[in-house]
Simulated scan of single mutants.
Amino acid sequence: MQNALWAVLVLVIGILVLRAITRERREYGRFKRMRRTAARQRTYRRWLVESLVLLGGLSLVVLLAAGGFVQPVLDDVRSAPVIAPALDALAGGLGIGIAVGLVVVLAGLIAVTVVVGRSATEIPALGDVAALIPRNRAELWYGAGLSLNAGVVEELLFRLALPALLFAVLGNGPLAFALASVLFGLLHLYQGAAGMAGATVLGLVMSALYVATGSILVPMALHAVIDLRSLVLLPMVVTKAHRIRA
Results as ranks from 00 to 15, higher is better:
residue 201 V to L: 12
residue 180 A to Q: 02
residue 76 D to H: 04
residue 73 V to K: 03
residue 185 G to Q: 02
residue 62 V to R: 05
residue 151 G to P: 09
residue 192 G to D: 06
residue 27 E to D: 14
residue 38 A to K: 13
residue 97 G to I: 03
residue 99 A to K: 08
residue 174 P to Y: 05
residue 86 A to L: 13
residue 189 L to R: 08
residue 119 S to A: 12
residue 241 A to G: 01
residue 196 M to Y: 07
residue 65 A to R: 04
residue 241 A to F: 00
residue 18 L to E: 12
residue 219 P to L: 01
residue 40 R to C: 05
residue 157 L to M: 07
residue 227 D to P: 02
residue 49 V to H: 09
residue 147 S to E: 00
residue 135 R to C: 09
residue 198 G to Q: 11
residue 169 V to G: 07
residue 162 L to G: 07
residue 21 I to L: 15
residue 184 F to A: 06
residue 163 P to M: 03
residue 46 R to Q: 14
residue 69 F to H: 13
residue 147 S to R: 04
residue 214 G to Y: 03
residue 115 V to Q: 13
residue 243 R to A: 13
residue 167 F to N: 04
residue 45 R to K: 14
residue 100 V to Q: 10
residue 234 L to I: 07
residue 75 D to Q: 11
residue 66 A to I: 00
residue 110 I to W: 14
residue 20 A to T: 00
residue 122 E to M: 15
residue 228 L to E: 04
residue 5 L to R: 15
residue 22 T to R: 13
residue 232 V to N: 02
residue 173 G to Q: 06
residue 175 L to V: 11
residue 238 V to M: 08
residue 225 V to L: 15
residue 8 V to Q: 10
residue 218 V to W: 09
residue 65 A to H: 06
residue 48 L to Q: 03
residue 30 R to Q: 13
residue 8 V to R: 10
residue 209 L to K: 04
residue 9 L to R: 05
residue 244 I to D: 04
residue 33 R to S: 15
residue 229 R to N: 13
residue 211 V to A: 02
residue 234 L to M: 15
residue 155 E to M: 09
residue 53 V to Y: 11
residue 111 A to W: 12
residue 131 A to P: 03
residue 139 E to K: 01
residue 59 S to D: 00
residue 97 G to K: 01
residue 56 G to V: 00
residue 161 A to E: 00
residue 213 T to L: 03
residue 175 L to P: 08
residue 52 L to Q: 08
residue 32 K to P: 06
residue 30 R to S: 10
residue 246 A to G: 15
residue 26 R to F: 13
residue 191 Q to F: 05
residue 12 V to I: 05
residue 157 L to A: 04
residue 120 A to D: 06
residue 107 A to E: 01
residue 49 V to R: 12
residue 45 R to G: 11
residue 180 A to I: 03
residue 167 F to V: 00
residue 5 L to A: 06
residue 195 G to Y: 07
residue 229 R to S: 10
residue 141 W to P: 08
residue 106 L to C: 10
residue 213 T to W: 05
residue 202 L to Y: 13
residue 15 I to N: 04
residue 18 L to N: 10
residue 138 A to V: 00
residue 226 I to T: 10
residue 108 G to T: 01
residue 1 M to Q: 14
residue 104 V to G: 04
residue 44 Y to S: 06
residue 111 A to D: 12
residue 40 R to A: 01
residue 140 L to P: 09
residue 99 A to V: 07
residue 62 V to P: 11
residue 55 L to D: 09
residue 54 L to P: 05
residue 2 Q to T: 14
